Amino acid sequence: MELRHLQHFVAVAEDQHFTRAAERLLVSQSGLSASIRALEKELGTPLFVRTTRRVTLTEAGRALLGEAERVLAQVRSAHEAVAAVQGVLRGTLSLGTEQCIAGVPVAGLLAAFRRRHPDVEIRLRQAGSGELADEVAAGRLDLAFAYRIREDTDQLRSVPLAGEPMTVLCHPGHRLATGPAALTPHDLADEVFVDFHPDWGPRRVTDAAFARAGVRRTVSLEVNDVHGLLDLIDENLGVAVVPRHFRHKRASLTSLPLKDSPETAYETVALLPPAAAASPAARALMALLETGSG
């Protein structure tokens, strides 16, 4: 099994199309098809279901994809480690992050990283914490800044960065704005909620807090961006439970602490592969963060 076969396989799996994958890889479509056929012959099973419009993974293809991505990530890390020993950090830094996480100035951190390591290409994507954890574990991301959602595994570890309590945001004309100085989930039982997708860290924290309190909560207004959430609250269309630093993003809104238990806190972590598998770029970024150079 050759590395190029795995590279070709992963590209076709990502694009679900031979022509697009060939164009991205700068190879001929016939050469790409031959590479996939050679891999299928070696493994003794089809990896794709081919149609006139797209290709999809077979069960065997899905099983291979995660392993192929991990192998390719390890190969990239090996190349980058050799370059680092030679005194030059090269390659790619693939970073994931949730929006507006606490304690990590992502833009400033990446700017400082680029100044120190101009030969490293930076790639950034935003997603929910669950998806980011899966991407790091699979080797598709070097690291991610997210909410702690699971215990460490052989493929994933969490480095604590910051923590903060949750707060209730509402319109200043809302009945809660003149109510108790701090609120419990029971105080919010009949409210209309604005919240993020269930994969986002703040949503996970809030869902868990209400479940512990035995309070049923319905999210009527679901968004995938912070500004959309703040706009809906600003129009008095609902309330939200969010990490405390959100209150500084819209001064016109009223912020009230949420009383629950010590578990009701948003903990920001860096999600990384095992220390031995971390890329030189990921280690360099974490070193910058730890020294406050961002």
Rank of each mutant, 00 (worst) to 15 (best):
M1S: 11
L3P: 00
L3F: 10
H8F: 10
H8Q: 13
F9S: 13
A11Y: 02
E14N: 06
H17S: 15
H17I: 01
A21H: 06
A22L: 09
L25R: 13
L26D: 14
S30M: 08
S30N: 08
G31P: 09
L32G: 12
S33E: 14
I36C: 05
V49Q: 15
T51F: 07
T52N: 14
R54T: 10
R54V: 04
G61Y: 12
L65W: 06
G66S: 11
E67M: 01
L72V: 02
R76C: 00
R76H: 04
A78K: 01
E80T: 04
A81S: 15
A83Q: 13
A83I: 04
A84C: 00
G87I: 06
S94G: 02
T97N: 02
Q99F: 10
A102D: 08
V104P: 01
G108M: 06
A111I: 06
A112L: 11
F113L: 05
R115T: 09
V120Y: 03
E121S: 08
I122H: 04
G128S: 04
S129T: 09
G139R: 05
R140I: 00
L141R: 02
A144Q: 13
F145T: 05
A146L: 10
R148G: 13
S158N: 12
C170Y: 06
G173A: 14
R175H: 13
A177R: 02
G179V: 09
G179D: 11
A181Y: 09
A181M: 13
T184Q: 11
T184W: 06
H186Y: 10
D187L: 00
E191A: 08
V192Y: 04
V194M: 04
F196N: 02
F196D: 11
H197I: 06
R204M: 12
D207S: 14
A208G: 03
G214I: 12
R216Y: 08
V219P: 00
V219M: 09
V226K: 11
L229C: 10
D234T: 13
E235V: 03
N236C: 03
V239F: 08
R244K: 07
R244C: 07
R247G: 12
R250C: 05
A251M: 03
S255A: 15
P257N: 07
S261G: 14
P262D: 14
T264E: 14
L271W: 13
A276H: 08
L285Q: 05
L288W: 08
S293N: 08
